[in-house]
Design a protein around this nucleic acid. Structure first.
Lengths: 329, 329
DNA sequence: CTGTTAGCGCATTCAC
DNA sequence: GTGAATGCGCTAACAG
């Protein structure tokens, strides 16, 4: 292993100057800087992160905690966070908690001394447990608010998505719209449903009906497909794209045609929405950008340069694809 | 921050004993061990990773480098690697190189001092560049072999997948089978196509025809959908599930019915194969297990307990869903 | 502008 | 079985 001492010796300066050249280049003379950098290059010197972290009390890394990296929603979020943290010179540790509150708690504890801060997405922790985490670490929450309201949080404006979905369907002529919800414990679920109710009330004659809560995957949609049709609705909105695709597949088996017999709208607009036939109309936010926002907020907090302004919720837009059309009658 | 000194003071022992209690419990007496552990618990002491790393010369973390975390293939791989490394007490740093050889090289360099080893999946690096990495770090390659053959590698037995696909289709009565390939530069592409050719030759009267190379995503499949039908084939095998779904969607627009008019088989058997209608028959390996295998191999190398036996390639199995049936004629 | 010095928190000798 | 002492590689005072 090559250390500052080796570089110092080769370039004829002290180890302090080597360190300075790397951390604060403007504090050394041009001549020595070039000399030191040449030696660094020549020896292939890379500062030891562990030593640097120990001395500085900061690791230069942040963590992103997600419930399930296989979920396209979190995959996109991760992608954005990754790009953004690299751009700011930070490493990113991604942790998949497999939807388990226990593992989440454990990982967060273990992470404590390894990173300078963390982003916790869609936490499965209780308010109390999460508040404790927020109190003892520098963190940013995604899609989850805490009563105290002191913890920085980035959220998606679910109401804007609901408005876009309802507006699109109402514009096509739909009057009765069914909503297949996600887990009742989910933070998004509550916001999506209340957003839909509000949006429906803003259109004359349009009503929304909640037809059950399912697990937020294709299996859930599959199971709810039949029930969703039992309410005279001409359009169905699903908790997320996966649920929507599950319904779509089940309806195909049942001979129900989309969008001829019923229109279908998903939430999140993940890449899977483009995969089905017909492709799925879906409302969603730019998740990569969302991930970037969270990283920025966290790093602003860590670097402490500016007091982080509480960011405005990211709005959702609708992407109209083939699964929606005017109702038959 | 609570350190060994705090724990030592509270439990009335020296810092050496505290450290020993944690790292080599059997080397302290029962009495002191319980006393120290109580103090650890009481103070909420967590060893500082940076200090520990500096002293021991190992970080307790490994890295997984993937081209694209949004790709379900790598997401599943990551999931398995994550679970397995956690189980063995190692942290996992996931890096997404966005399919860029440049970023990959840069990240690998930066990672060097931060992890004890790395797993490089589907590297975009040149043989030379990759060989250099392999020479200077402890690493394990996934889906990519190096001429020198000295670098530990875990691979998937693509030939077994090809055999399963051809066998299934031949069994249904298909004789002429088209293959829509992926990027020619892809390591898997070559193995898949040659495996298909070999497998076809093992069945009387069965032939496989290569009908072009596309980008390995739904867009690629969309573009190749029409061309795939121009060869009198009654069944089509796609480079991967995404390509298959792209074709499926395009065919739906074209009025081509699956599996009535043509059968379709994907590669990788990622979760998206379950999402389409009809759901996609696909050959694939257990990717989570694959990720676990890679982690095990790497950690065995690092811990150096046993000389890592070169693992056998993971075999692929076929999952038959609704996209395949006997040919019409 | 540059060098000397003193630890950061921990794991490991080596005595006892 | 335990304690005292050393230094891992680096950065941040402080002097010069």
């Amino acid at each position: 292993m090559v250390t500052v001492h080796d570089v110092a010796e080769l370039s004829g300066v002290s180890i302090a100057t080597v360190s300075r050249t790397l951390r604060a280049p403007h504090r050394v003379s041009d001549a020595t800087r070039t000399r030191v950098l040449k030696a660094v290059e020549q020896l292939g010197y890379r500062p030891n992160r562990a030593a640097s972290s120990l001395r500085r009390g900061r690791t230069g890394a942040i963590a992103l905690v997600v419930p399930d990296i296989e979920n396209p929603y979190f995959a996109s979020l991760t992608k954005g966070a990754q790009a953004s943290s690299r751009a700011r010179g930070y490493g990113l540790v991604v942790v998949d908690t497999t939807e388990s509150a226990e593992i989440e708690a454990e990982e967060i504890r273990a992470l404590g001394s390894q990173v300078d801060g963390m982003i916790i997405a869609s936490s499965r922790l209780s308010d109390d447990a999460l508040a404790e985490v927020a109190a003892s670490t520098t963190c940013v929450l995604i899609n989850r608010s805490l009563p105290d309201a002191a913890t920085p949080t980035v959220t998606i404006d679910e109401a804007s998505g609901a408005r876009a979905a309802i507006g699109h369907l109402a514009g096509l002529g739909h009057r009765r719209i069914a909503y297949v919800g996600g887990p009742e414990s989910s933070w998004s679920e509550g916001r999506r449903w209340s957003g839909l109710l509000t949006a429906a009330s803003e259109h004359d004659g349009v009503s929304a009906v909640h037809v059950g809560s399912v697990t937020p995957d294709a299996r859930g949609g599959h199971a709810a497909a039949a029930a969703a049709l039992e309410h005279d609705a001409t359009a169905v909105i699903a908790y997320n794209d996966l649920v929507a695709l599950g319904m779509l597949a089940r309806w195909a088996e049942l001979g129900v045609r989309v969008p001829d017999d019923v229109s279908l709208v998903g939430f999140d607009n993940t890449f899977v929405a483009e995969l089905s036939s017909p492709p799925l109309t879906s409302v969603g936010a730019d998740l990569r950008e969302f991930g970037e926002t969270a990283v920025s907020l966290l790093l602003d907090r860590i670097d402490g340069s500016t007091p982080p302004p509480s960011p405005v919720p990211t709005t959702m837009d609708i992407t109209v694809r083939g699964s929606t059309a005017a109702p038959a009658r």
